[in-house]
Each structure stands twice: as structure tokens, then as C-alpha cells.
């Protein structure tokens, strides 16, 4: 199984690096004086599952928040399918894009947050149908069917009428995953999806993410501290530190044969 996946990965990579789904080109992000991302180049192919690991403060969360348009890059360009995310081409020059352009581009991205961020004033079902109805213009009936299917996938088909406050953290995060899936993004971002959970609830959420990953078509960028899980699910591991990618590659290589000193000491700390 693993062998097949690796072969797939190599094959895909060979064909598709020329046409990445997501491309960061010399992207930097600073908050005031603090540089969080420095001149970063980073690609994701269609369908690829990338796990980002690294010490806290290494910029990994910012990396995906830039892609979700929650933070604006200080410099550099991010492209989705070759089209700039934060910029628009006007007369051969890149200028800052307006809300309309961001709206068009965001349709290809979905995100699951560390703190779930469910809408507390809506039922589980409503959480999952509000955007399809209002953003995608679906009929409520169609949206509900799709939402129910996704909620069944995450094992919550019996909680449709509950409110978020009535659910456990693990259940809330599974709803959040279903809510993002309903929008059918091309790439799904996970921002430490299990960090806010009690230890006994981590498993159920990881199982759901694993299942989605195995279905294949959707690309995933996963910021996580769950090393075993990352090794298991990801096609590629990216190790960031100090706002840069220090080392990346095949999960097996990264974990069993880390080359840089910083990755070695990071892995040692994570294991202890």
C-alpha cells in the first residue's frame, strides 16, 4: 500500500510540478517588525497531501492563513492554478486584488480551524448549509442533502438539530470538517485541527481526516503536531523553522533519515 502510494506520488510529482495547484513564490509576511515568513517558495500539486511540521512560532499557521486570505502577504505572490490569489494583472502589472477577486479565488479553498469556529447560533445542519445556500446559490433542499451526506461521512448524521454548544470538542471539529467539505474545495487547509481537543477526542477527528485523505481527489495542507498521523497520511512532509522551509520530502525519509540538524533536534524533542 505504502509502496504504491509512494510510486503514485513520484509519478504525480514528475508530471505536475509544472502545473502546481498552489504555488507560493518568494512570499514573505511580517507582523510589524516580526518576520514570520521569509521568501518562501512552496508548491502543492492537485490531490497532494502535505503535512507541515515545525516548532511553534515557525510560521506554519501563517503559511496556510495566507492561502485562506486571512492574512495578506507583505511581499511575493501566491497562485492557485497559475492565477494570482492576492493580486490581479492590470496592463501587465500585478496590483492588489479587490474583494471580488478574492471571493472568486476563495471558492477553491476550504479551511478547518484549531478552535473549530462553528457558528454557535445555528444548528449543526444549518452550519453546513448556510454557505452552500448563500455563497454557492444552491437550493436549501439540495444543500441539505449534500450536508447530510457529509455529516454522515463524519459520523454525525444523528446530530443534525443539535447546537454546537451541545457537542463535544471532537464532534464540533467533525462538524467543522463537514462544513468545509460541503463547499467542495480543491484544497483543504487544516490548522492544527486536534490541538484544542482533549486527548481522548483526538482519535475520532484524525480518523475522519484520514478517511478524507484516502478518498484522494482533494489536495490537503495539514499543519499538525501529530507526527505519527502526518507520517501515515501525508504524501510529503514539510519542516518549517524561522519562517523558512528547512527540509521537505517523503515522510519515511523525513522521519527516519532527517538531514538537517534542526529537523533532527525537533524530532528528538517531539519524541521525548
Amino acid at each position: 500500500m505504502l509502496a504504491v502510494r509512494t510510486e503514485e506520488f513520484i509519478g504525480k510529482n514528475a508530471v505536475e510540478t509544472a502545473n502546481p495547484l498552489v504555488a507560493y513564490k518568494k512570499v514573505s509576511k511580517a507582523f510589524g517588525e516580526v518576520k514570520v515568513i521569509r521568501d518562501l517558495d512552496f508548491n502543492v500539486s492537485p490531490g497532494e497531501k502535505v503535512a507541515i511540521i515545525g516548532p511553534s512560532g515557525s510560521g506554519k499557521t501563517t503559511l496556510i492563513r495566507l492561502l485562506m486570505t486571512l492574512e495578506e502577504p507583505t511581499s511575493g505572490v501566491i497562485e492557485i492554478n497559475g492565477e494570482p490569489l492576492w493580486h490581479k494583472e492590470v496592463k501587465g502589472k500585478l496590483v492588489k486584488a479587490d474583494e471580488k477577486h478574492l471571493h472568486k479565488m476563495r471558492g477553491q479553498i476550504g479551511m478547518v480551524f484549531q478552535q473549530f469556529n462553528l457558528f454557535p447560533h445555528m444548528t449543526v445542519l444549518r452550519n453546513c448549509t448556510e454557505a452552500p445556500v448563500n455563497v454557492l446559490g444552491m437550493s436549501r433542499k439540495e444543500a441539505e442533502e449534500r450536508a447530510k451526506a457529509m455529516l454522515a461521512k463524519v459520523g454525525l448524521e444523528n446530530k443534525l438539530d443539535s447546537y454546537p454548544a451541545q457537542l463535544s470538542g471532537g464532534q464540533q471539529q467533525r462538524v467543522a470538517i463537514a462544513r468545509a467539505l460541503v463547499m467542495r474545495p480543491k484544497v483543504m487547509l487544516f490548522d492544527e485541527p486536534t490541538s484544542a481537543l482533549d486527548p481522548e477526542l483526538v482519535g475520532e477527528v484524525l480518523d475522519v481526516i484520514r478517511e478524507i485523505a484516502e478518498e484522494g481527489e482533494m489536495a490537503m495542507i495539514l499543519v499538525t503536531h501529530e507526527m505519527e498521523f502526518a507520517k501515515d497520511v501525508a504524501d510529503r512532509i514539510v519542516f518549517t523553522d524561522g519562517g523558512k522551509i528547512v527540509e521537505q520530502g517523503d515522510p519515511k525519509e523525513i522521519f527516519e533519515n532527517p538531514k538537517s540538524e534542526r529537523l533532527q533536534s525537533f524530532l528528538k524533542r517531539m519524541r521525548s
Binding site: M68, T69, F113, A131, V135, R179
Partner: peptide, 14 residues
């Protein structure tokens, strides 16, 4: 909380 706005952005609401 800011997370509510962020979740709404992630769902591509205007």
C-alpha cells in the same frame, strides 16, 4: 470572536 469572521471568510461569504 475573530474566529467567527474567519470561518465565514473560509466559507467564502461576502
Amino acid at each position: 470572536p475573530k474566529g467567527q469572521t474567519e470561518a465565514a471568510i473560509a466559507l467564502n461569504m461576502t
